[in-house]
Amino acid sequence: SQAEGPLRRPSVPVREATPPLSARPSPPDAPPSPTTPAPAPAPAPSSFVTVEYQRQRARELQQYFQDRKAERQAAEGRIFGWSVKNEIGNGRWAMFGVAVGLLTEYATGSDFVDQMKIIISNLGIADLE
């Protein structure tokens, strides 16, 4: 969607404040839910991953995604080369040329080769007729 603002910094609260392993973070106070007495999440055993590990992997992944994006942009932005834009662009010129050439040939009787000769003569490149 078009209604995007500039990417703001993520507002993740700093989690390093929790003291490491010595004082395990206790499960959050289960707020007495006004609607239904939902069971508070059981104090779970420690997860098998740590925040530092996640952070390191996050950096690797971010690098990977950025590299992939740069590669894609390089492939698309090429002026000379086999890119999609080039294929479509050359094709458009070719479609246009075929249509015009056929129309001119129908109207004037000069075939494609004659037309090329006329252009080259009129542009002053060489005298072919």
């Binding site: 973070p25 959050p28 997860s47």
Partner: peptide
């Protein structure tokens, strides 16, 4: 390397 660092450090809270 992943296995050794996975165990040491601040554990991820299971309520997140």
């Amino acid at each position: 390397m992943a296995a050794s660092t996975a165990m040491s450090g601040t554990p991820v809270r299971s309520t997140s």
